[in-house]
Design a protein around this nucleic acid. Structure first.
Lengths: 207, 207
DNA sequence: GTCTATACTCTGATAGAC
DNA sequence: GTCTATCAGAGTATAGAC
């Protein structure tokens, strides 16, 4: 019901997202995006003016689609271990559903640091600024209860969790080749990984 | 003594490496590489025929510079905890010294899986093929001694260590912006991270 | 081996009819 | 809003003199 009612603008944006994710700003071709969207190349310029502007739009949308979901996990009132499990599952699901998104964010942001500022930091005091205190408090409680090591830093914990979840997705291609497994087994591997990563992290922070 | 005796070919290769690392295959410009090397643009084609061939050469060298160092760590006869510490230090040093190398490997390999095969897997039975059994054996010994959990899989352990070491380097730009720290503090952060990651991993695999 | 000049291709962008 | 045709610029590649 929804698929046919898409406007041209939406179709372009969707295809642009797809192509930019795969090939980056420089690698993507306007013609390819147009073909994928089934519209004329001139339409891209009609709606978005230039390649750069189209790219910016895609980028902005990507960041905005991820931020609230993550924010939600962090700010939800759950115990630390449930929260970690939750975060791991969301991260893997979120970025696995949109392959290249993590690559895209990491790569394009490295080259245009200013874009990060506009999109991530600006949202009411910053994503990180809001999250760190919350995690900090939970860790503190955990330490007092004696279920968390006393030298665990919240920023590092989050960084470690993100690393464990995202790098395997970013390097999925390499990984599959290296281990010699197909898409199906990869999916199952990632599904299982939600548990192994959670266990790994929980074991690591236990005193 | 070494810097002036460089041949033109070497200078080009060095500059190409630098520019390709930063901008990728599509983003890099032959003119920029030539300028950086201080030679004429035509020289690039004289020595390497085409942009693609030059890129291939850079890529091949990169992989070959990393492989033996890692192999060495894995195959050296040390205890498991020392080996993990060793691996973490080498990974961080190696990839921190050459920013963009990890990005470069992960990105370009995702798009050209065939290149991986030629460069990484081919080296006498494959990097991974040789490493897994060695780690497996060490884990087995650790399990029997009761100092390692019995559900730790070697491939996952390596993947986790690599994730913890590489993602922060790949996302260094984003990370610095997000945490609001300068290059100096970042260096110290990474230096400290060698210990925290080692501790994190060792704690995670402990029963 | 190195340089200059140039050919050729690709692609982002626009003008203008409908 | 959409399409065709076309331009302008950038960038890779090569020919040919030295």
């Amino acid at each position: 019901m929804t698929s046919k009612k898409e406007t041209t603008e939406e179709k372009i944006l969707e295809s642009a997202k797809k192509i930019f994710y795969q090939k980056g700003l420089k690698g993507a071709r306007m013609q390819e995006i147009a073909d994928d969207a089934g519209v004329n190349k001139a339409m891209l310029h009609y709606y978005f003016r230039s390649k750069d502007k189209l790219f910016d739009k895609v980028f902005e949308q990507s960041v905005q689609s991820v931020t609230p979901v993550l924010m939600n996990v962090f700010l939800k009132e759950t115990e630390l271990d449930a929260k970690i499990n939750n975060l791991v599952e969301i991260l893997i699901d979120l970025f696995l559903k949109e392959p290249y998104l993590s690559n895209f964010i990491v790569n394009e942001l490295s080259q245009n640091p200013d874009k990060l500022y506009r999109n991530v930091m600006d949202s009411e005091g910053g994503l990180i600024g809001q999250i760190i205190p919350v995690i900090n408090e939970q860790l503190q409680v955990g330490i007092e209860k004696g279920i968390v090591k006393d030298d665990i830093k919240p920023a590092e914990l989050i960084l470690n969790i993100m690393s464990l979840c995202l790098l395997p997705i970013m390097a999925q291609g390499v990984l599959q080749q290296t281990l010699g497994i197909d898409d199906d087994r990869m999916d199952r591997f990632m599904e299982k990984r939600k548990q192994t990563v959670t266990k790994f992290v929980l074991a690591a922070i236990q005193p």
